[in-house]
Design a protein around this nucleic acid. Sequence first.
DNA 1: ACAAACATACCAACCGGTCGGTATCTTTGA
DNA 2: TCAAAGATACCGACCGGTTGGTATGTTTGT
Lengths: 201, 201
Amino acid sequence: MLDTGFTLIREKGYAATRVDDICAAAGVTKGGFFHHFRSKEDWAAAVAAHWGEVTSSLFADAPYRDLADPLDRVLGYVDFRHMILQGSTAEFTCVAGTLVQEIHLESPAIRAAAAAAIFGHAETLVADIAEARAAHCPQADWSPESLAAFTQAALQGAFVLAKAKGGPDTARAIVDHLRRHVEMLFGVPHGSGGLKAGAGH
Amino acid sequence: MLDTGFTLIREKGYAATRVDDICAAAGVTKGGFFHHFRSKEDWAAAVAAHWGEVTSSLFADAPYRDLADPLDRVLGYVDFRHMILQGSTAEFTCVAGTLVQEIHLESPAIRAAAAAAIFGHAETLVADIAEARAAHCPQADWSPESLAAFTQAALQGAFVLAKAKGGPDTARAIVDHLRRHVEMLFGVPHGSGGLKAGAGH
DNA sequence: ACAAACATACCAACCGGTCGGTATCTTTGA
DNA sequence: TCAAAGATACCGACCGGTTGGTATGTTTGT
């Protein structure tokens, strides 16, 4: 019921998703739905929270997490995001970003849950960025938090442009620029290291 | 009727905006509304097209456009975007981005109009970027188009994070990183030149 | 036995869109 | 010149399918 929310919200948005759609997709009836959720809004907030958990474990278990060097992990993160930009927009775009863009002023509960997913994910990057910064450019005039936020903005924006264009190509070019940004900040030559080499794109 | 659409869509999104809301805000009746637009969808597509025109003239008339050096114009653009990040999210976020994120799969007409506004705006940056690239780094391995797209992604993403956080502060920090990205690409020292100096933020 | 987990039937409000009608402006013809 | 004819702009009551939510019954696990 929460998982089907991912598809529904990414395909139709929150307001256009009907409770009956959710029931049909999840194989339950309306009575069952309202047994578990006080309202449609309550459901959407739960979906956002669930999205945060699912993505959390996706990135925690990703192979780049095992790299020894913190900068490799940061670049590995960017490359991993590049890699998962595949299929239709409904497959790779962000549920939390879609929700928050649509209802940020109408539903504080959904907004808060989606914001927690987004900024909670950004938070997981901060430690690696801080370590890499200390090792490569301790005098830099930017904070680890601001770079983490910038990566999330570039990705969320990549999703918006991908939806406008209808495919992942534009988004991949944007993530390429994001990688270049990280490389330049840390003073590493373009294209070196990371999981990207040999991935063939 | 088109202008009120900017506020409505930014505050409630497309699906949650009722035709009655539009009529009340614009001071017309339902009959009048459907006299000018075949459907609500038709109206939204017109709003997206109008948004493209309004932003087009906003940036065409901005002061940074008069700068002689192409790189100054590119940096001036980024600084201008930084400057207009003021007030509530409903005042500075992008109508086309909001629309496309919500209905890209449900309404091809709205998607196309919003995409035209976004990529049409990006297109206006390409000439300046190409000139600056030729002057400062003709061997660079990135295209003017890809950088233009990257700026739009960073901005659209900044809007998403701003909506999640509830104010423009996060968005400004993201645009700061965007400026740094442009500076590094063109090899200029951080914080030099442009309209930002003395603007006091 | 009993509460949690469903299902069925139903409702009242809502909402996009229609329709007959009116007021005003433009064109036409003699 | 001016009235008949037609086009355009606009109004607001109304329609009927939709929708989030409820009330009540049934099944299931312990």
